[in-house]
Amino acid sequence: MHQALPLSEYLVLSRGQWDEHLSPEEIQAAIDAFYAWHGRLVDEGRMRAGQRLAREGRRVSRQAVTDGPFGESKELIGGYWHVLAGSLDEAAALMAQNPTLACGLSFEVRPIDPERASAWVASNETPPARS
C-alpha cells in the first residue's frame, strides 16, 4: 500500500507585470483562467486562498517609514498564494501550470518554515559569514 507524503505549505509570491503587448481582453482571459485553475486546486486541497496586493504600501525600517514600491518595477510583488505539496519541487511544478505565466508573470515558491526564529539558527535574516 502506497502512503502519501504529508503535505507542507509553500508561500507563492506573484512577481512581474503583464506583457505590454497584451490587450485588456487577453489579460482578462488569463485572469479568468487563473481563478478557474486556482478554484479547482483549492477544492482539491492543493492550494489555499491568497490575495492580490494593493499598489500602495510602506517600508518600515529603523531609519524611517517610507512609501513603496520597494524595489525596481521588475521586482514588483503583485500577490501571494499558498500551495500545499509534498515537496518544493512538487509545489514549483504545480505553479508551472499557472495560466498567467504565458502573459509575463512569474512566481517565487518558498517553503514556510514551521519553526520559530532563533538567533542561533541560520535563516534568511542571517548575514553572510565574514571572511
Rank of each mutant, 00 (worst) to 15 (best):
M1W: 05
M1N: 08
A4E: 12
L5Y: 08
L5A: 15
S8N: 15
E9A: 14
Y10W: 10
Y10L: 09
Y10S: 06
L11I: 12
V12Y: 06
L13C: 03
L13G: 02
S14C: 13
W18S: 09
D19P: 00
H21M: 06
H21I: 10
L22I: 10
L22R: 02
L22K: 04
S23C: 10
S23F: 11
E25I: 09
E26P: 00
E26N: 04
I27F: 04
I27P: 01
I27T: 08
Q28C: 02
A29D: 04
A30D: 11
A30W: 00
I31G: 08
A33L: 00
F34L: 10
Y35E: 13
A36M: 00
A36L: 01
G39I: 07
R40P: 04
D43A: 15
A49K: 09
A49M: 11
A49S: 14
A49W: 14
A49H: 14
G50P: 03
G50E: 05
R52L: 13
R52F: 11
R52H: 11
L53Q: 03
L53C: 08
L53T: 11
A54S: 14
A54V: 13
R55H: 15
R55E: 12
E56M: 12
G57D: 07
R59E: 14
R59S: 15
V60Y: 06
S61Q: 01
V65S: 14
D67M: 09
D67G: 12
G68R: 00
G68A: 02
G68I: 00
F70H: 09
E72K: 05
S73P: 10
E75Q: 07
E75F: 08
L76V: 14
I77E: 02
I77R: 05
I77S: 01
G78C: 10
G79E: 01
Y80E: 00
W81C: 12
W81A: 12
W81Q: 11
H82N: 08
V83Q: 01
V83R: 02
V83F: 00
L84F: 12
L84N: 04
L84D: 05
A85D: 03
A85K: 04
S87N: 05
S87W: 07
L88G: 10
L88R: 10
D89K: 11
E90K: 08
A91W: 07
A91F: 03
A93L: 06
A93Y: 01
A93M: 05
A93S: 11
L94P: 05
L94Y: 05
M95P: 07
M95R: 04
A96L: 00
Q97H: 08
Q97C: 13
Q97Y: 04
N98W: 05
N98Y: 01
P99E: 01
L101M: 06
C103D: 12
G104T: 06
G104E: 01
G104S: 03
F107T: 09
E108F: 08
E108S: 09
V109C: 06
V109A: 00
D113K: 04
E115S: 14
R116H: 13
R116S: 15
V121K: 03
A122M: 07
S123E: 01
S123R: 06
N124H: 12
T126I: 05
P128F: 06
A129S: 06
R130P: 01
S131Y: 00
S131E: 09
S131C: 03
